[in-house]
Write a protein that binds this DNA or RNA. Sequence first.
DNA 1: ATGCCCGTGCTTCACGGA
Length: 292
Amino acid sequence: MRIATWNVNSIRTRVGRVVDWLVREDVDVLAMQEIKCRPEQFPAEAFERAGYRLELHGLNQWNGVAFASRHEMTEVSRSFAGMPGFGKPVKGQEAMQGVGANGLPLEARALGVTVGDLRLWSLYVPNGRALGDPHLDYKLAWLEALRRDAEAWLAEDPDLPLALMGDWNIAPLDADMGDPGFVVGQSTHVSPEERSMFASFAPIVEDVVRPIVPEGYTFWDYKAGRFPKNQGMRIDFIMGSRAFAEAVTGASIAREERTGDAPSDHVPVVCDIDPALLGSTFEDEFDRPMVF
DNA sequence: ATGCCCGTGCTTCACGGA
């Protein structure tokens, strides 16, 4: 069972490349971020022809998250309970996109699905923009709310195989930041506040990729030749609960997806799950044991 | 110190990204 996350930076521009990669790499479930379109604009046919079902959440040309899965997806959530919004207070037409826990309009940054026993979230954490910018307060509040909700899910079911995967927009360690445009004390993504917030998830979820792939970036800015100079950032993560992490048998970062024609600025992050290491329901559903 | 490179909108620049 192969699970991946990829900030695709516009699915309409990238659809051929994304579906080719899914098929070539035999991916079962892909969490996408920055699809940059509404559901009716999503190029669904290409995914469906390749055997993938879709769950989509997009409100406009910004943000947008999605899942493509070879397996049935249930219990679809387009936000988490404490998720804050951003912008001007909701009124009239804006109310159609939903109101966050802070009374402000929700953005399309979170999508939760259940696949077998797995609870999976595709997350696009707010960028933060700059130190002192209201967007950074939003980013920190958004993550705090996510952590509190995830704590509650796991308090209710400590054995839940939960994965919080996506673009976290934080480089947790110094080794995760190779872009000289980002400096501790001057920039987002490396600030003590963001790193502390990321670290506060440790009691509930862990990075399941780093133990297997200790080095490497997941994003290189299009500008200033960041990829040829390998001045990237590691900001895309698959964070798994104990039950999820115990079932992980492999992981990789698909660096080659930053090369060739019209790449996203992010690359896929992948992990492999052995269903036998999860609960029996999942095993029965997907391993299809022979019946005599 | 600034822009670099992209994608989107109903485009000829503004904006968001990280």
